[in-house]
Design a protein around this nucleic acid. Structure first.
Lengths: 110, 110
DNA sequence: CTGTCTGATATAGACAGCCTACATATAGAC
DNA sequence: GTCTATATGTAGGCTGTCTATATCAGACAG
């Protein structure tokens, strides 16, 4: 998939994946891969900065944990994050309607 | 709509709007507004450079015309552009399936 | 005949955010 | 001991969208 086509949708993806349960960065990457049927291979250089940004904004909160000798920073949705996720979902619907509508304008009718 | 969420989809929009008939930049902007029900207000600083880029790549060709004393550069799809548009459409479908799928993962089932 | 609006094209520079590449470290398998 | 999987992180590049600005012609109000 074209690289920066994800631009502007990373937040929605991350928040969505954290809705079910708190996860650490590495597990988030795996979850995205899994849920997309392998289509989403988001690099660590994208995910970790994004998670920090979302925490700074207040949509996520994190805690350190040590599991099997390895350190993990586990992120969870805050209340603001849940609210934001709803916003992201409706923005996504509007976005796909608008762009999809324009793209279909010629292809379908006529 | 969030500004740079269009990133990576401008090409598809421009090619799609030019599929029906050749248009000049200003008319393309109006056409996008019209077809999106007013949702797409793409600034000239986005459209004109994008059109030039698409011409440089070979997806568009342009000619100057003078209508009522005003100069217009009219763009039309090349054969490569038509082919590219098909590619953009299927990429769009895949894109929406993948992201939409992840976003719906929690919202729907369960 | 001046000012302002619409139509029309264009460029420079800012900005955001995704990506590549790299650095670091532990656990477990072999 | 070396390799792979697990795990987090930063620096810098890239690219394309946006903001702001400039220019010009015609129309039309006043």
């Amino acid at each position: 998939m074209n690289p920066d086509v994800l631009r502007g949708h990373m937040d929605a993806l991350l928040l969505s994946v954290l809705e079910r349960e708190p996860l650490h960065g590495y597990a988030i990457i795996e979850a995205l891969q899994e849920r997309s049927g392998g289509a989403l291979n988001v690099p660590t250089g994208t995910v970790y900065p994004a998670l920090r940004r979302l925490e700074r904004i207040g949509y996520l909160a994190s805690e350190w944990a040590t599991v099997g000798g390895r350190k993990r920073r586990t992120y969870r949705l805050t209340d603001a994050g849940k609210k934001q996720l709803e916003g992201e979902r409706s923005a996504w619907r509007e976005f796909t309607n608008v762009i999809g509508g324009v793209l279909r304008a010629n292809a379908v009718s006529r």
